[in-house]
Design a protein around this nucleic acid. Sequence first.
DNA 1: AAAGCGGGGCT
DNA 2: AGCCCAGCTTT
Length: 359
Amino acid sequence: MKYPYSQQFRQSLVEWFHEEKRDLPWRQTNDPYKIWVSEVMLQQTRVDTVIPYYQRFIDKYPTIESLANADEEELLKMWEGLGYYSRARNLQAGVKEVVEKYGGTVPNNRHDLQRLKGVGPYTAGAILSIAYNLPEHAVDGNVMRVLSRVLHIKEDISLVKTRKIFEEAVEQLIHPEYPGDFNQALMDLGAMICTPSSPKCLLCPVREYCLGFMEGDAEQLPIKTKKTKEKHEFYDVYIAVNDGKVLFEKRPEEGLLANMWQFPMMLKGKSSEDTKKQFELKYNVEIKNIIEEDFFEQKHIFSHLIWNLRCHLVDITENGELPEFAHYVTLKEIEGLPLPVPMIKIVNILNQYIFHSPE
DNA sequence: AAAGCGGGGCT
DNA sequence: AGCCCAGCTTT
């Protein structure tokens, strides 16, 4: 499809961007490595959340080689709280490949970029347009919302194939001299003006080219159908103390929260089943004394899953060797390990209990 | 094509 | 209580 007003649209959009763009840390550089880091952090994550992580990350890993050589556990610790932890491991895998295969120079073409771990069509386009000033599309949820309104595209954006419609639109509309600014302008517009609900159409620099505004249904776009319903899982969590140390374990290297650390958790078939025996068997320990049964309860909501954690504080003795994934650590040592947020919350409650209890 | 993968902020 | 966020990988 051919779109009218391309020239005026891109001109107005980029001019607005030059006046109103947000001052963001990754906009102080053209270093493709740093752009790459920022784009990976920004996947499914808000700008305000990313900013402090980006700063600390670049301070610790200022060059592509420094990240390639980083210790994975330290890397995960830097990513702690940001979520989608496979992003961190994929980023390091991608960076290593660039160092080995391309002598540390980030590729400047879509084909090579998209073959890197963790780099998909969006991230490749963002690096190419922002760092290398090449006229490549970078279509994310923001861009689909803005363009679905401007161009009145009513295809379902939850379908994979729909993205191609937007990529082709961007190829026509993109500013040939300022491709990076054009792509970022669409994102800033989506964040500041063309918001999911209550878009500020009266402040929009491209209102006069917007079919959604003309039709009066901009806020109803984009069309999105998919909604998966979440699953509940119930666990008994054992805070198991032995001689001033607690039992702690590293999660498997694949799947949810891969390689992150946690207190031992036993999945319950029904919500009230007793898991003490299975716990003792799995970790080869014996519960000597229950200090606090049902110490506290905690719910954690993931995007596709809800954890209900029932935490118990127990004294244990060893029966023999621990399984290889389990270790005894001090609370101080836990601070140095990468933990998912639900475990951080448990550690905080535990610290309060130990150091701030009335007696 | 659909599901898996975190966490937080806004309505 | 949903929805969405500068998405990618695996099945």
